[in-house]
Computed example of a mutant assay.
Amino acid sequence: MTQPKFSIGDIVHHNRFDYRGVIVDVDPEYSGSEAWYEQVAQSRPPKGAPWYHVLVDGSMQSTYVAERHLEPGDSSQQIEHPSLGQFFDRFDGGRYHLRRQQ
Results as ranks from 00 to 15, higher is better:
I79H: 06
A49I: 15
Y96D: 05
A41Q: 10
P72H: 07
V26D: 01
Q101Y: 03
Q61A: 15
Y52Q: 10
K5M: 11
G94N: 09
I23C: 02
T63C: 07
V24C: 03
R44W: 13
Y19Q: 01
Q61H: 05
Q86G: 06
D10W: 12
R99T: 09
K5C: 10
K5G: 10
P28F: 05
W51G: 04
S7A: 14
R16C: 06
Y30I: 13
V56A: 02
D57Y: 09
K47L: 14
L55M: 06
Y37I: 13
H81F: 03
S43W: 10
T2Y: 01
F87M: 00
P72T: 09
M1W: 14
D18E: 14
Q77L: 01
G9V: 00
P72W: 10
D89C: 02
L70V: 08
S62N: 13
S62M: 02
V54S: 02
R20W: 10
A66P: 11
Q3P: 06
D89H: 01
L70M: 03
H53Y: 05
P82V: 02
R90Q: 04
G9Q: 00
G85T: 11
F87C: 01
M60W: 15
Y19D: 07
R95P: 02
D18H: 05
P46R: 15
V12M: 00
S75K: 10
V56C: 10
D89P: 02
S75L: 04
R68D: 14
A41R: 12
D57S: 11
D27N: 05
Y52A: 02
Q77E: 15
S83M: 09
G48W: 12
